[in-house]
Nucleic acid binder design. Structure first.
Length: 876
RNA sequence: GGGCGCUUAGCUCAGUUGGUUCAGAGCAUUUGGUUUACACCCAAAGGGUCGGGGGUUCGAAUCCCUCAGCGCCCACCA
């Protein structure tokens, strides 16, 4: 059976993925092994795979595959998120294109459309994850709107309500006029925008005088119910107790006093619009002012907007300014930049608005979650720098607005009754609600039809914060075997952008509902950016199509490309050339195996010393690399781990081991060598498998074809073995000698073999001479005690000097300049060492080994200088 | 306004508690090489006064101060 010349990823990817699934390698059930669990950050159910997902999930797959090989009961739970606002927005848009408006649909009709959409596109992204090789236990796939998942959410709501942590509050919230819902503070992104600061004059009621206020939002004057000045501000003392007239609408409003007003800013007069600004709201409550809400839910003005009614807030801003200009009450206009809140989802400019919403008290929930991360270290954030960000947010946490004026999501389990919805009960079902209502209201004849469920749904994150518990049904059945076995999970891999949205809240939920942290490590990836450092996004069109990349380079190559430069927490400037590098690496591995497979084996040949030595060197290099790789994994430095394996394969295995053991053209390899090489190859396949699952599995099966078959997926990760530093040092020396000979050849345009002599200092031998002979293409290596002063080539490796007795023309002028330069350097270096050594403070303070080292450096330098000097003499 | 982080080769980044031979890697570059696994390749080479300045120390890319530039998070200044 011959191996194809080219590795064609598409030809093997589906084959092996199917094979893995058929053999249930990714399936996990509780047993007596230690579990290693990862819950996926559930992508939006209607989402499409992008670069961020690819990186994120490749990382998780690398972790879970290695854990599986290390003998853990590895369990990676996949799933999707209903993504309330995002999905609803998409459905609304899609219906709009068909000419259907949300407002014309009933809730049930709308939800039917939403489910259709979900059934059509939901799970597409999970299929895409399979393409990149993700080894999830697909039988465990969860969706946040699944019945048990929803039940968990409702149970938790009721529980928190009964504990007094959930309350209904009439408060200022963030209103998204496009999605027409409230948002949590975290969903508001503050962006710097340039606008204008308008100075508007208000007449003082009953006096021939006016005052001037400054505002960035002139349309809100229609909602003004006071003017506020600082009581200490001498400029306005004569106005205390008077009223002012709001331009346009002519309303007379009081001039109130409060220290809140900054005397320095603007004119020192502040217009107060309690219904449209959080600070004004506090002032309004403090001074018992009227609240005038001038906006409709869609951001247009309502009847308080007078002649502007029905127009959009930004249109009104323009026309009201123009109108005031006409009335002469616009004093001036200045350029002004300020941070404007925008919706994370729709990008719409947020309106602060007072309304009645459900809130969750966070302070007490946060307490154990702060301790876990900052003191007990039960949950580690990687990289550590996020600890500060976390602390800052957690210590200043505010109550969480959990209600959304949407339909797609978990409906709030609150049932109203009474004339104006003035009573309510909280229950998991209408029937249960009726029972409670009858008890509470004392009306035994109450009918179920009198109950009206709250129209709102819960924030998406109110279900995802339970994810690590609810995927094991740990809310509904707190003592089930699964949750007891898998929870707490080990690693969570996600982006830092959802540290507050999701990670922090999961930690809080973990302590609140299971009295235990949800995961012990949080690996926060960087954000994938393009070459110009811009975040990849659909709008910018700078995101390569994920599946397109896989088709072009192969899944293994893309995974390698992503891993090569993705240190935790560092943003990754994605460059397609990294995938190219990954593809080249795939090709390299493939060809290495093709080479081995092509060799004829002759059982009668003895193993050459060079092969024996080379394999010995490789084994030690392997063990050292394994130690390094394991250490990198321990520190979650996956790109470093990959680079270590990359170099082990490319350099140590291919460039050295295979080049040394490769039989001459037409000859055969001995049986011992080929067998040992194959064993080494299998070991490196294991190391590369978590990174490149497909090609490693393909070759693994080819190697194994004559013996019993077993998947690499469930093979064992190599165990660290001792390696000898002296062997590695000799190996390194041989590489340098070979390199030097090659360099010498190139410098002198030599092609033929030639004899090489070694001039020694402290040793009369070098190791692995057979190997050197072979790779450097030399006739012989001789040792000599005497300095050889013939003309010829000379080079040094460490303190050893090598001489090549060959009649070649040497440009002695050039050579002596080179030697002199080197001498200068060495002398300067020696000088600085001698300085140190003659400094009594250094000798007294520095540890012995450092001093010894310095002395050795000095001696070595002297030897080198001596060498160079005699070389210089021989030139003249 | 508060907090955090970054600045090391053309690019992307390592550099662990200051000390293992005048700073490392990958990519890119230059030069030479193709009948004998791979040009998606082999071999060799070049390339950095570690952002600027000052300080601590026997010794600083590493610690401290300061200046400059960049990035992120948080915050209600109209």
């Amino acid at each position: 059976m011959s191996i194809p010349t080219k590795f064609v990823p598409s030809a093997v990817e589906d084959k092996w993925y199917k094979y893995w699934l058929e053999n249930d390698f990714f399936k996990s059930t509780p047993d007596n092994r230690k579990p290693y669990t990862i819950v996926i950050p559930p992508p939006n159910v209607t989402g499409v795979l992008h670069m961020g997902h690819m990186m994120n999930n490749s990382l998780q797959d690398i972790l879970i595959r290695r854990a599986r090989m290390r003998g853990f009961n590895a369990c990676w739970v996949p799933g999707t998120d209903h993504a309330s606002i995002a999905t609803e927005a998409k459905v609304v848009e899609k219906l709009k294109k068909k000419g259907i408006l949300k407002k014309d649909l009933s809730r049930d009709e709308f939800l039917k459309h939403a489910w259709e959409w979900t059934d059509e596109y939901g799970g597409v992204i999970l299929e895409q994850l399979k393409k990149i090789g993700c080894s999830c236990d697909w039988d465990r796939t969860k969706f946040t709107l699944d019945p048990e998942m929803s039940k968990s959410v409702i149970t938790v709501f009721i529980d928190l309500y009964n504990k007094g942590l959930i309350y209904k509050g009439y408060r200022m919230v963030n209103w998204d006029p496009q999605a027409q819902t409230t948002l949590s503070d975290e969903e508001v992104i503050h962006k710097e925008k340039t606008g204008s600061l308008f100075y508007i004059s208000y007449k003082v009621d009953g006096y021939d005088e006016s005052l001037v206020i400054a505002t960035t939002r002139p349309e809100t004057i229609l909602g003004d119910t006071a003017i506020c000045v600082n009581p200490k501000d001498d400029r306005y003392k004569h106005l205390h107790g008077k009223n002012a007239i709001v331009p346009i609408c002519g309303r007379s409003i009081p001039i109130i006093l409060d220290e809140y007003v900054d005397v320095e800013f603007g004119t020192g007069c502040l217009k107060v619009t309690p219904a449209h600004d959080p600070n004004d709201k506090s002032l309004g409550e403090k001074h018992k002012l009227d609240f005038i809400d001038i906006l409709n839910p869609d951001g247009s003005l309502n009847s308080f907007g007078l002649q502007y009614e029905g127009q959009d807030r930004f249109a009104v801003r323009k026309s009201i300014v123009k109108d005031m200009e006409g009335l002469g009450c616009l004093v001036k206009k200045e350029n002004h930049t300020s941070k404007v809140g925008t919706s994370e989802r729709t990008n719409a400019i947020i309106e602060p608005r007072v309304s009645e919403q459900w809130f969750l008290k966070m302070k007490n929930l946060a307490k154990p979650a702060i301790g876990a991360v900052l003191e007990a270290n039960e949950v580690q954030l990687i990289p550590k720098k996020f600890k500060n960000t976390y602390r800052n947010w957690m210590e200043n946490i505010t109550d969480w607005n959990i209600s959304r004026q949407l339909w797609w999501g978990h409906r709030i389990p609150v049932y109203y009754y009474g004339k104006n919805n003035d009573h309510y009960v909280v229950a998991e079902s209408k029937e249960k609600a009726l029972e409670l209502a009858i008890i509470k209201f004392g009306n035994p004849n109450m009918l179920i039809s009198e109950l009206r469920q709250d129209a709102d749904v819960l924030d998406t994150w109110f279900s995802s914060w339970l994810w690590p518990i609810s995927v094991f049904d740990g809310i509904n059945k707190p003592n089930n075997e699964e949750v007891n076995y898998y929870y707490p999970t080990q690693d969570l891999v996600t982006g830092p952008d959802i540290l507050f949205f999701w990670v922090a809240r999961m930690i809080m939920a973990g302590y609140a509902f299971r009295d235990k942290f949800p995961f012990s490590k949080v690996y926060l990836t960087g954000i994938v950016r393009d070459q110009k450092g811009r975040k990849m996004s659909k709008q910018l069109g700078n995101s390569p199509e994920a599946l397109g990349l896989i088709n072009e380079y192969g899944a293994d190559a893309v995974r390698v490309g992503l891993m090569l430069s993705s240190a935790a927490g560092n943003d990754l400037l994605f460059d397609e050339s990294l995938c190219k590098q990954g593809k080249n690496f795939t090709n390299k591995i493939w060809n290495a195996y093709r080479l081995i497979d092509s060799w004829n084996v002759d059982s009668k040949i003895d193993q050459p010393i060079s092969s024996k030595d080379a394999i010995l060197c490789f084994e030690h290099a392997f063990n050292k690399a394994l130690e390094t790789v394991d250490d990198h994994f321990e520190k979650y430095r996956m790109s470093d781990a990959l680079m270590t394996v990359y170099k082990l394969i490319w350099d140590d295995f291919c460039s050295w081991l295979l080049e040394i053991t490769k039989p001459d053209y037409g000859s055969s390899i001995d049986e011992t060598s080929i067998n040992q090489i194959k064993i080494q190859f299998q070991k490196i396949l294991k190391l590369i498998h978590p990174f490149m699952p497909f090609i490693s599995e393909e070759i693994w099966h080819i190697i194994k074809s004559r013996s019993k078959k077993e998947s690499l997926v469930i093979s064992s990760w190599p165990v660290q073995k001792k390696y000898s530093n002296s062997v590695l040092k000799n190996y390194d020396t041989l590489k340098q000698i070979v390199g030097s000979v090659r360099h010498f050849r190139k410098e002198n345009s030599l092609k033929q073999k030639f004899p090489l002599s070694l001039f020694y200092y402290k040793t009369n031998s070098i190791k692995f001479t057979e190997v050197i002979l072979r790779l450097a293409q030399l006739d012989k290596i001789e040792f000599s005690n005497k300095k050889i002063k013939e003309k010829g080539g000379v080079f040094r490796v460490g303190v050893n000097e090598f001489f090549i007795p060959l009649e070649i023309k040497i440009d002695s002028k050039k050579e002596s300049i080179k030697i002199n330069d080197e001498l200068k350097h060495l002398e300067k270096f020696l000088g600085s060492i001698m300085n140190k050594l003659s400094n009594s403070r250094f000798v007294e303070n520095a540890p012995n080994d450092v001093i010894e080292l310095e002395m050795k450096k000095a001696n070595d330098s002297r030897e080198k200088i001596e060498n160079l000097q005699s070389r210089l003499e021989s030139l003249n």
